[in-house]
Design a protein around this nucleic acid. Sequence first.
DNA 1: TTGGAGTGTCAACAAAGCTGACTTAACCTG
DNA 2: CAGGTTAAGTCAGCTTTGTTGACACTCCAA
Lengths: 165, 165
Amino acid sequence: MAEVKGGEALLFLTDEQLRQGIEAMFFAYRGFTADPDRILETMAYGRAHHRAIHFIARSPGTTVNNLLAILGVTKQSLNRVLRTLIEDGLVESRVGTRDKRERHLYLTEEGETLERKLSDAQRARMRAAFRAAGPDAVTGFRQVLEAMMDSDMRRRYHAIREAGT
Amino acid sequence: MAEVKGGEALLFLTDEQLRQGIEAMFFAYRGFTADPDRILETMAYGRAHHRAIHFIARSPGTTVNNLLAILGVTKQSLNRVLRTLIEDGLVESRVGTRDKRERHLYLTEEGETLERKLSDAQRARMRAAFRAAGPDAVTGFRQVLEAMMDSDMRRRYHAIREAGT
DNA sequence: TTGGAGTGTCAACAAAGCTGACTTAACCTG
DNA sequence: CAGGTTAAGTCAGCTTTGTTGACACTCCAA
């Protein structure tokens, strides 16, 4: 399994190093979601609502099915979240013109206001972390995260990146 | 996408870059938990059990209170999980010798077997990601994650690292 | 034009968080 | 040693967010 590269590739993959990586991931993810969670709990929303709002903002007009695949939940689970967001006037669902089975999702102005509030908080933390760690670290950070994704998630990740730019 | 290097530290923190960081974190965390989740769902356990088992394995003899703080859940929530693990003979709870109010937690042999199974799966993915990204990337990865933690979580992260080494 | 496949919705249920109130036992301090 | 504090565990009840099953509407191709 462990191929001896030069000599260096060995030490750096000890179980201890890997465990530290696992724990870093666990603790960092807690920080990553902490700020939006604080905002959300003052309203009747949770993390699931945040995720839906984020990806609708990122790909306006996306279909329910597409969102399903990105979020990796069942459609019933997403539907509940989506229904409250639509009822509360944060998300608009338009019947597809080409295919009337599809619903295309958009944020309303109110929805965009909340999205900005949530993503401002999350970006602020990400910005602070990036700044503290420096540009080279950020490159490495992204490389490792990308290598950690399942391949279909990696595809989606790139698809969104291209659309978003 | 192609950033102008000359302006360095400024351009590199565009909202688009930050959003990509956020999404990378989201997709990668999914991959990070996918393998253990698959194993756990064949038994009657969930992610909460995995977390408890991981940190008991990492700090044998830890107290309930300590675990509570590390996991960031309520006593009632942890207790439910811990109770099933003790009943099933994966975790042992010993009354403290110095302070008899405390319970010290240990994995039984059976518990260690499951722990190894879960952590093997997770480490395999982490190892693959580290190997694919390279040593410098791993350094950056850890720097950014550490900067993203809340300060008290960062303290705990270091405390465990020292104990585990 | 009809039957199968795709998209979305509703209902009911389960896992795992949460709060609040309480008990028991042990420790510690005045 | 009495009284307050701390560690752990428990009971009840709620919320969020996941699940499966059944169903309706739409499209498309045989």
